[in-house]
Amino acid sequence: MLHFNFDYYRPSSIDEAVELFDKLDQDGKKPIYLSGGTEITTLGRLNQVFTKAVIDVKGIPECNVLDYKQDSVVVVGAALTLTQVWESKILPLLGEACVRIGDRTSRNQITLGGNLASEIIYREAVLPLLLSNSTFVVAGIEGIRQLSVHKIFKEKLRLKRGEFLVQIKVDGKYRKMPFYIEKKRKSERVDYPLITLEALKVDRSIRLAISGLCAFPFRSYEMEKELNNTDISIEERIDRAILRIPAPVISDIRGSREYRIFVLRNTLLDALIYLGGVRA
């Protein structure tokens, strides 16, 4: 039950969408884009989101693309649901991150774009996209931009006013690379993460991205560097990597800072063993 009402628009093209936004914004409607609609219905009822107009991007064909051709680029539309991304098996690295978000029924509604642009701090779908140096396709009144994930996703999705996420693109080579993913929760199988950790092995080195540990999801080159230092023992690598966590580790109702680090340590160990064929 939302206590405020809004106007609803469902444009069928990118141009129509961005023009609508521009106009509604000028009219003071504080428009927002939506796709799955799960966040406006849940945060709206708690007064944490407010708008007088929503623009539903699900009707835009580019937002619904799911494409991969041999040796080329994987393209995933932002309006696809997490279930669709997972079931397509188009990019296991991404699918396995999506299937750990929320619960199954919610994943039938939450979209990839919705998770990436979420107000809630976890945004776990970005982990594989950080690891695979993906490209984000965003549309705005000035046209379409293609940007590296590292440029546009810094702690959260940094869109300009009036822009929305259309697609993400990932090099097809990442489809077959070995990766490790684990989501650790407080105790319940359906919950936000204590930490979600995804690691990808490219050639002989490991890339690492984590959600839930700090107030935002990140990929850390400093931590990767420590983990890839094969001169020292695996435990020492982990110890050093933990010293390189890029931001304060959070303490909240799901777990204390110390416990999160404890969980991280074990999960890193599992990841390294899994990807490295190392024995603990």
Partner: peptide, 9 residues
């Protein structure tokens, strides 16, 4: 497909 009708407009 199951959906949660409280989260769908």
């Amino acid at each position: 497909l199951p959906v949660k009708s409280c989260m769908m407009l």
